[in-house]
Nucleic acid binder design. Structure first.
Length: 461
RNA sequence: UCCUCGGUAGCUCAGUCGGUAGAGCAGGUGGCUGUUAACCACCCUGUCCGCGGUUCGAAUCCGUGCCGAGGAGCCA
């Protein structure tokens, strides 16, 4: 007996096969002598219709009592369906109930709100929409790796536990093996020297600095892993735990960096369009009907590139009454970014050469002494999706900048060393992976595009 | 963290002027049909988010706490 997944059967041409399907009941339509069961095995969006005749040994006892969500193994003949609604079906010879779903199974056949589904994150992948999102996320993840592999990048696993904070990347979560409760009860002071690592450690906020070290050895590398921010951000675009893709390239400047980033984003969109058609069609029906048009547009058109200077001028000339004033030297706010991408250009925009004082220490100073070789890629509806820069490869410049920011150089000696031993121009960027999954799926809330979202006050499951 | 809006059955929601609750779905029972968000009949389901107040009487009005959503800040 051949075990087959539903996704294969949807394109199987040979009829009359005897085979086995394993999955979960999505819906049952009972009558006296025949029951139709929609079985979903997660391999694709589509259900397989199983036809269960009254002659089955366990028809009255089990088949007629099947509940939604139950796990079943069906053996039978794969044949053309005489009725409309599906091309093929499985005429059951045996149906084995592997695991019953209790009658309080919370998923109904009707639509649920995403807020409700979030409360049952362990069950929500069994819905059409969250199942589709999970498959699209997986496809995009695969595309990340294939994109870099095709271009000769090496995948580097940077550490999750770190002792630097990538300066300005946000609040960190402390990692400790100390018995904090006991220390508090005893009224003792925290002494990190007594802790596991002999100093204070935290969950990483970025793998960039470590990736730079490997770029200085392997040439072109990327990281793709979880990162953590303890910011009290309560928005539909932020998570406390999210996945970031961070390539780093030696012998590259800002222009190469932007070219790569644009090519990368388009590659991901085209990959999804080519490989996730069925799931994207579902998202278009239920979440955003213009989705594929928007994805195709972004995948084909060249991104608009402009300097921070020009962006500030455009926003000032627009004579729009913003809540935050646009002025040279201040960072662009959400409303400004949205105005650029959604009102002026109606497509992705790359803003480059930001003022030095609003950007972190590792970005390369431009010759004007005022700006750095930085770039942000802004997407309509999403905001900043990529942030990157050419890194400061000149020892004196880097150290000078760190000193002026009051940083403790000892903490970063290894990073400074990279400029002492064969430094080379290099550049990289970071992509918030969930943001691109959001863009591709059209999901409004970032909590729907990661399986078990971590946000302030919420780490259940 | 700030602003705005919300919390009624397992789910989606209605509930008028203050008089202690309802419809669909889910679940149960039966019927019926190659059905397909099946259909029909009957049955079951409530700390109206918690606490306090006003009132003869509160799901409804007031205060407060908790939780959720949208937006902002911060960022990816």
């Amino acid at each position: 007996m051949q075990y087959r997944r539903v996704v294969e059967l949807m394109t199987e041409k040979e009829l009359g096969l005897h085979l086995e399907v394993r999955g979960w009941v999505r819906s049952c339509r009972h009558s006296k002598e025949v029951t139709f069961i929609d079985v979903n095995d997660g391999s694709c969006l589509a259900n397989l219709q199983v036809v269960a005749e009254g002659s089955l040994a366990n028809y009255a006892e089990e088949v007629k009592r099947l509940t939604n969500g139950s796990a079943i193994v069906v053996r039978g003949e794969f044949c053309a369906s005489p009725a409309q609604g599906q091309a093929v079906e499985l005429r059951a010879s045996t149906i084995k109930v592997v695991g019953w779903a209790a009658e309080d199974y919370p998923l109904q056949k009707k639509r649920h709100s995403f807020e409700f589904l979030r409360q049952i994150s362990h069950l929500r992948p069994r819905t059409n929409s969250l199942g589709a999102v999970a498959r699209i996320r997986s496809a995009l993840s695969y595309a990340v790796h294939s994109f870099f592999k095709e271009r000769g990048f090496f995948y580097v696993h940077t550490p999750i536990i770190s002792t630097g904070d990538c300066e300005g990347a946000g609040e960190t979560f402390t990692v400790s093996a100390l018995n904090l409760e006991k220390l508090a009860l005893q009224g003792q002071k925290l002494d990190w020297r007594q802790d596991f690592f002999g100093r204070q450690a935290n969950l990483t906020v970025s793998g960039q600095l470590e990736a730079e070290a490997y770029a200085m050895a392997l040439g072109r590398v990327y990281t793709f892993g979880p990162t953590f921010r303890a910011e009290n951000s309560n928005t539909s675009r932020h998570l406390a735990e999210f996945w970031m893709v961070e390539p780093e390239m030696a012998f590259c400047d800002l222009q190469d960096d932007i070219d790569l980033a644009e090519e990368f984003l388009k590659y991901l969109l085209r990959y999804a369009l080519a490989n996730c058609q069925e799931d994207l069609a579902l998202m278009m029906n239920y979440v955003d009907k213009d989705l594929s048009l928007r994805l195709e547009n972004v995948a084909e058109k060249a991104f608009v590139r402009l300097s921070y200077d020009e962006a500030v001028r455009l926003l000032t000339d627009a004579k729009v009454d913003f809540s935050y004033q646009v002025q040279w030297g201040a960072d662009l706010h959400s409303e400004h970014e949205r105005f650029l991408t959604e009102q002026i250009f109606k497509q992705p925009v790359v803003v480059t050469d930001y003022p030095l004082q609003i950007k972190p220490f590792y970005m390369r100073a431009n010759d004007d002494g005022q700006t750095v070789a930085a770039m942000d890629i802004l997407f309509p509806g999403i905001g900043e999706i990529i942030g990157g820069s050419q890194r400061e490869e000149r020892l004196e410049r880097l150290v000078g900048r760190m000193e002026s920011l009051g940083m403790v150089l000892d903490e970063y000696q290894w990073y400074i060393d990279l400029r002492r031993y064969g430094s080379a121009p290099h550049a990289g960027f970071g992509l918030g992976f969930e943001r691109i999954v959001q863009f591709v799926t059209g999901m409004k809330n970032i909590r729907e595009v990661i399986p078990f979202p971590r946000t302030p006050g919420s780490a259940a499951f």
